[in-house]
Amino acid sequence: MSRTFLMLIRRDLLLAHRQGGGSLLAIAFFVLVVSLFPLGVGPAPEMLERIAAGTIWVAALLSVLLSLDRMFQADLEDGSLDQLALLPIPLALVVLAKTIAHWLTTGLPLTLTAPLLGLLMQLSPDAYGALVAGMLLGTPILSLIGAIGAALTVGVRRGGVLLTLIVTPLYIPILIFGVSAVEAAAQGFAISAHMLFLSALLSGTIVIAPIAAAWSLKLALD
């Protein structure tokens, strides 16, 4: 079972690698969106420092949103989704494997890019740890909730817009906890409460999201 699971992750990583550019596009979009803000609100360092955490988190959220619609779509189009459903492991585990691969190709690169953007946005030096730790806990939740939306809208006309409409409201708690952790750290407060909340959300979603997404995928396979 665990071998199949690891093979699935490897397959998706290989696909992402060979198709090329998947992670790079997400990172490029992330950097671009963040760099629009100094142009929009002016380059004053105090202003940038004030909005740094929010901007970086919102941009990360949008980058993940953009990458979601291909999560199951390609597999549905070439028929491999039917094959994946026939695997001896539960469909929920297949979804989990694909979600982990999705996180490794989007969430993780975004997290690693975030400190650089913090630099550009004059983020307070004390806040880098909170930003990276928050994104390490938060971006997997984005991928997991996104998997539900992607599974619900797979094979649906204009699924991309619908996906955004469905998923964005569900992302709000992660945005709030992620940003408040960075702001607390910048003002010298403890961030353990925020991290615990994010961990709780992650443990909850990691159980519920693959099951809900697997149910939704079965609709597309009928």
Binding site: I166, I172, L201, W215
Partner: peptide, 21 residues
């Protein structure tokens, strides 16, 4: 069925959203 799944996911999420906000 798709809408029912979404309604349930939303129902689980609404208290979290409410609390966080």
């Amino acid at each position: 069925r798709a809408a029912a799944i979404l309604a349930l996911v939303g129902a689980i999420n609404l208290p979290v959203i409410k609390f966080s906000v």
